[in-house]
Computed example of a mutant assay.
Amino acid sequence: MHETTLLLFAAVSFVGIATPGPTVLLALTNGSRYGVKRAAYGFAGAVASDFVLIFAVALGLGALLAASVFWFTVVKWVGAAYLAYVGIRLMLSKGAFDAADQSGTSADSNRSIFLKSFLTAVTNPKGYLFFSAFLPQFIAPTQPLAPQYTALAVTFALLDLSIMFGYALFGARAIRLLKQAGARWLERICGAMLVALAGSLALYRRHAA
């Protein structure tokens, strides 16, 4: 893969990742609630989902969802329901920022932080359709496909990791000024945005991809 192609992919991906979406909103709230150190488990979940999405597309899952109304609908409603669940929980939050959360003794385990970000991404069919349309633009069909998909996956994951770190750091710094009331409103706002994204996913139609 040519370096210019990889740089172009990175530039376009950066814009897409930086635009607030479900995993970015979770990074922001995790940073405010747990601090950057524990929010890193959410980063890991999102990065793991990047590899799952890209390699699933490489194996043809994106094409399956684009061709099958049934499987697209199943994945869409599972994703919308899970996203709404996460959003509603944040909206009902009383503001969980405290020393216990940052020390790792809160009710939310590191595993649950990881899974929340991972499941939010892998149950979103728009991700599969997006990568199905996006990745082939940077793939040279005359060259071995596996190294190319691997290079794109690693590049995308590194960008995702750095951007989520920035959002989590912003959330952690901001909450020190806003304190408990600020934590509550930040989580409610992010929760409302996640519910809105769940609604948009529920209304999403395959032919709109």
Rank of each mutant, 00 (worst) to 15 (best):
M1I: 05
M1V: 00
T5I: 11
L8K: 08
A10V: 07
V12H: 07
V12C: 12
F14C: 09
I17S: 05
G21T: 06
P22M: 12
V24N: 13
L28G: 08
G31N: 04
A39W: 00
A39N: 11
F43N: 15
A44W: 01
A44H: 05
A44Y: 01
V47F: 05
A48W: 01
S49L: 00
V52S: 00
G60D: 10
G62W: 08
A63P: 12
A63G: 01
L65R: 06
S68E: 06
V69A: 02
T73N: 02
Y82V: 04
L83A: 09
A84G: 03
Y85V: 00
I88C: 05
S93Y: 05
S93I: 03
S93M: 01
K94W: 02
G95F: 06
F97T: 13
A100D: 10
Q102D: 00
G104Q: 13
S106P: 08
S109F: 08
S112M: 04
F114K: 11
L115R: 04
F118I: 05
T120V: 14
T120E: 05
V122I: 11
T123Y: 02
P125R: 08
F130E: 01
A133W: 04
L135E: 08
F138P: 15
A140C: 09
L145M: 10
T150G: 02
A151E: 13
A153D: 04
T155H: 03
D160C: 13
S162T: 07
F165E: 02
L169S: 11
G171L: 12
A172N: 14
I175P: 02
A181C: 04
G182T: 10
A183F: 15
W185I: 00
A192G: 15
M193K: 04
L201V: 15
A202M: 09
L203H: 10
Y204H: 15
H207A: 13
A208T: 11
